[in-house]
Simulated assay, not measured.
Amino acid sequence: MGWLSAGDGYEVALVEGRVAARATSGRSAGRQLKTLPRTLKDHPEVDRLRRFAEWLDRHAAGCVAQVDAWMVSSLPVPTTLLARVWPDTAWQAALLDLAVVGDDPDEVGFLRGATESGELRVVNLDGETVRLSPTTVTLPHPVLLPDLDDIREFAAELGITQGVEQIHRATWRRPDGLDAKATEVKEFAGGSFRSRFALAGRASSLGYRVSGGYATARVRDGARTVEACVWIGEPYWDEAVETGGLTWQDAEGRALPLRAVGPVAWSEGMRMAAALYAGRVIEEGKNA
């Protein structure tokens, strides 16, 4: 975006997401100023740029949220769609270097580019840049990736960083030998918070939905949608509370046996429970 005239002697522009100004006359002509002059703070062009910057921030956050949803659900995404949004820098930042899988489920690569024709440029696990033209690709949840530790090691060698947490996302695998009738995990129960408001606020800040007495995460796991739930206390309860157990429900609200919870729903539910528990009040001193 270029510089725009803003009254006598100044131009303004968005620079790294902030409104910046530069003088158009005098000894500092053409030089970006360290701070916005007071005379420009209420200028219409400055206000317009601020609102545009806010829109860009919301757009970038929306792109990340959508890509994260594609990844968590592992739903197929049309390559033509990826090609269409790739020129947008916000979409590109969210998609760049995500692990993708095309027609061969065993061939994993890191997304580096997309052409207008729908061809994807991918770095495979042999370190070679290849071009793929599948009709759709998936951005698999890391718990579904084979040899995840090897993929993480290879990504570190390449210096890969991801705009959406995927390969370094915390994962949990459902243990074997669970009781056939068990419906609750208590590993992260008992985390103390000074108030229900504080616990609900933590859940919301982490992106989880608060409904009634629960923090919830809805996950598409295979062909069905499952909701993971952690008890956080009765609404409007203003005294100390503790995190409760973790359960999963089907679309009809029926509790699922732990053995029936799929790998993605299990991992995402445990991730939510662990994140809530991590914010607990930790007692200090000899009685801690």
Rank of each mutant, 00 (worst) to 15 (best):
P134W: 00
V85F: 05
K34M: 07
A90K: 02
V164W: 07
E116V: 14
C229Y: 10
D176V: 14
H141E: 14
W237P: 00
C229N: 13
D47T: 15
A13K: 02
T243M: 11
E45Y: 01
A6V: 05
G113W: 02
D250K: 07
P134Q: 00
Q92W: 09
V72Y: 08
I167A: 10
P76R: 04
T136V: 08
A182W: 02
L81I: 05
V100E: 13
V46Q: 08
P78D: 04
D42L: 07
E116Y: 08
D8G: 12
F110C: 07
G9M: 02
V72N: 07
G102R: 06
E227I: 14
R131L: 11
P105W: 10
P105V: 12
R218A: 15
E54N: 09
G269Q: 04
V281T: 15
F188S: 13
P76S: 11
E242G: 15
V64Y: 00
E119V: 11
S28V: 02
G118F: 00
A182P: 07
W172Y: 15
A155V: 08
R254A: 14
V261N: 08
E16W: 05
V130M: 00
C63V: 00
G118I: 02
A6K: 01
Q92M: 15
A200K: 04
S192T: 15
A83C: 01
I282K: 02
D106G: 14
G177H: 01
L148R: 15
T129L: 01
A20N: 09
V261D: 06
D149S: 13
T136S: 11
E184C: 13
R84D: 06
G269E: 05
S74E: 07
R50I: 10
R224T: 15
L4G: 03
V130R: 03
D149P: 01
A182T: 11
Q166I: 06
A94F: 05
E119H: 03
L178K: 05
S205C: 02
A288N: 00
G113A: 08
S25T: 06
E116S: 15
G30V: 02
A182I: 05
S267A: 03
G17H: 07
M270W: 05
R51V: 12
